[in-house]
Each structure stands twice: as structure tokens, then as C-alpha cells.
Amino acid sequence: MANEYIGASVFYFNAEGIEEKFVKSISAFSEKNNATTQIRGSGKSGKVIRQNTPGQAESDNVTITLNYNGDNSIYDWYLKCSRDGEARQWEDNRKAVSVVGYAQDRSTEVIRINFTNCFPVSYTAPEFDATNNDLVTEAIEIAIEGFKIERSTNALSN
């Protein structure tokens, strides 16, 4: 099975203490290093010398859409961190979040993305529509402080 591609639908999600959730989708994650352009000075004949340097790194938030089954653990996490009018406990409720991608055999872990110090910044409650045949979903958007992409030691060989 060398060089097998990973199916986008074969993955697992957990957030410290929130496990066995059936996740419909996880938004693409991206991070960028905002380069800055600085003028170093002026040289012979008035030539301006510029240098691009790394600036602040910026991570996008991640949105996780889950099939709702009556378990309120995602909503409860949001309330602990973000509810107006009440003491926000986001610092104490940050979680490590993992997304794991599996090979088509559904047991070989191929890639793991570990997000650190995550907390929810928005929550979308289930929506009901009598004309819709889809399952009811809820969504949570999380801010992340850092991440690491790992290739599993059990991964398929190249």
C-alpha cells in the first residue's frame, strides 16, 4: 500500500475530553508568515536597498461541523469560554485538539494535526427545516495558538 492517498472523509476529531463525536467536516487550516519589507538604507548613487523579513505569524481559526445527537459537550465548552454577562473561563478551558487522517483500511493512522491551546470563538446551533433531508448539525469555530503536523510512526511507507 505504498504511496496510498488519504481519503478526505476518513478522519477522527477529538478535543481533550470531547471524544466520539461524529464530525461532518473540518475547515481547511492555514497559517502564514506576514513578510515585511524594510528599507535598509541608501547606497552608492542613491540606490535604495530593501530587505524582506519574516513578520508576525498568523493562524486562521478552524471550524468544525458536527452531526448533532443531543450531546451538548461542544455547546457547553463554548459557554464556558465565551458567554457574555458571565465570567468567561476561556483560559482554564483551553483544549488540545487533534485531527487524525487514516488510510483506506480505516485503522492505519497516516497523519495527525495537533492544535494547542484552543478555545471556541463562535458556535452555530442546529438548524431545523421541514424541507431538508440532511442530518441536523452544529458548528464550532476555534481559535488556535499553535499546531504541529505529524506523520504517524504507523504511516504507510513512501
Rank of each mutant, 00 (worst) to 15 (best):
I111K: 01
N61E: 14
N132T: 06
S122A: 15
Y12E: 13
A125G: 11
A103H: 00
F11C: 04
F128C: 10
Y102S: 02
G43K: 04
I113C: 04
F115T: 00
N69P: 06
Y78M: 05
G101P: 00
S59M: 15
N52F: 04
G146W: 03
Y12Q: 13
T36R: 10
K80E: 12
T116M: 08
N69H: 13
V121W: 05
T153A: 12
E16L: 05
A2S: 12
L66K: 06
G43A: 08
D105K: 06
A2E: 10
N117W: 06
G7H: 09
Y12K: 13
N132P: 02
I49G: 03
K95N: 07
Q51M: 10
I74H: 02
S25G: 04
F147H: 09
R88W: 05
K47A: 11
R106A: 14
V110R: 03
T108H: 07
Y102D: 02
V100L: 05
Y78F: 12
A8R: 12
D105L: 07
A87F: 13
I142L: 12
L135P: 08
S107G: 12
N117G: 08
K44R: 14
E19N: 15
E127D: 10
P54E: 12
G55N: 03
L156W: 02
T36M: 07
A8C: 12
S42P: 06
I74M: 09
S9R: 12
I6R: 02
K44T: 14
A103G: 03
E91R: 15
I64A: 00
V62I: 15
K148T: 14
T137M: 01
S59K: 15
C81I: 07
E150D: 09
I18R: 00
N14C: 09
D129C: 05
Q51P: 01
E150A: 06
T37A: 08
S45E: 14
N132K: 10
I49S: 11
I39P: 00
E4M: 02
V97M: 03
V100E: 07
A155E: 00
Q89T: 12
F11L: 07
N114H: 05
T131N: 15
I18E: 01
A96P: 01
N14Y: 06
A15N: 01
P54L: 12
A143S: 13
I111S: 00
V10L: 11
F147Q: 02
N52M: 09
S152G: 03
T124C: 09
Q51Y: 05
S27D: 09
S122V: 09
E86V: 13
L135H: 13
A57C: 11
T131L: 10
C118I: 01
R88P: 02
T36C: 05
